[in-house]
Nucleic acid binder design. Structure first.
Ligand SMILES: [Mn+2]
Ligand SMILES: [Mn+2]
Ligand SMILES: [Mn+2]
Ligand SMILES: [Mn+2]
Lengths: 162, 162
DNA sequence: ATACTATCTTAGCCATGGCTAACTTTTTTC
DNA sequence: GAAAAAAGTTAGCCATGGCTAAGATAGTAT
């Protein structure tokens, strides 16, 4: 249940690495953690609208059951989250009916889709296997800034084996 | 308050990218989301032990106040989280006293420290600016698999300007 | 020693994101 | 078109991770 603590490469720690481990200035440090908390606030909603958009596109319909099956959670959990999505004006639906994205939801889905694709393609271009790349990209995407995305895009374009 | 939905590069979407956006098989998709939920379970605890370790190392002591200041949260929040850290056997402390890491806490801190450093150095080696790299690394680190870490390490070693 | 200040804890509040169980509605089957 | 199955909702539970307000303890000055 607990994350393994010995699950990572044990390669040599070089001199030059030592320096970068000192504590950053407090204000910087605070910004780092705040950015993470911030990302976590919208993470799930982003994944939902992205998935709903994909289901609409590839299956013509987005049903709660499909979402529950894909996300690996119960239907009740999906129902509750959909209520939140509606209250945030991202999703539209009648009770017991299929789900749709609002304009705002479309926009968020489109952003998430693009961002996710950039990170996934980058990881593959780097040389990470497809399965691992998909898993890592799903979590990483929400923590990648615009600047880093641009660097990733350029890398994939220039050196990608995609 | 809501995440901006137009905050990302709008570069052209190439043909080859289109294919990779199709829905992955359901089981794979479930694994992706499960991995993210899993990472989020330990994420905060990892950052706490990492920070406590750094404070012990660089300031000789790890006080709740310092943690609260660095994390940008209230002391009450730190107190509550420390209770959890103790109940998981990661941290040791007497009431109103400084914090220490258990063996288990040390191990987790060491893992987190290494992983965090690898991701940070990788981003810098990629060409991301220091400030951005620090922010992105803080969130990304928890979602990077062993395989990807190894690829990042190799990249930094071979092409890094570090 | 007393008083002040800084630190830490506790209680109680809230939102999020899981779950199961019970119920309702819709869809399919016969 | 009735019965059965599938899909969706609601209620109520729990843990996490924030917060404020109030109180307790420790450390510093005077
Ligand atoms: Mn995701
Ligand atoms: Mn970290
Ligand atoms: Mn972190
Ligand atoms: Mn995360």
């Amino acid at each position: 249940m607990n994350a393994s603590t010995s699950d990572f490469p044990t390669g040599s720690t070089r001199m030059s690495e030592q320096m970068s481990d000192a504590l950053p200035p407090s204000e910087q440090h605070v910004r780092q953690y705040a950015a993470v908390r911030n990302a976590h606030e919208t993470e799930l909603l982003e994944d939902y609208v992205e998935l709903i958009g994909d289901l609409l596109k590839y299956q013509g319909e987005a049903r709660s059951t499909d979402i529950a099956a894909r996300m690996g959670v119960s239907q009740a959990t999906v129902s509750k989250t959909v209520t939140r999505l509606k209250s945030q004006g991202l999703v539209d639906s009648q009770p017991y009916r299929s789900l749709f994205l609002t304009e705002k939801g479309e926009a968020m889905a489109e952003m998430a889709r693009r961002r996710h694709a950039i990170v996934l393609q980058f990881l593959r271009a780097l040389g990470v296997s497809d399965g691992t790349a998909r898993i890592d990209a799903e979590g990483m995407e929400h923590h990648v800034s615009r600047e880093t995305l641009e660097v990733m895009e350029r890398f994939t374009r220039e050196r990608g084996r995609d």
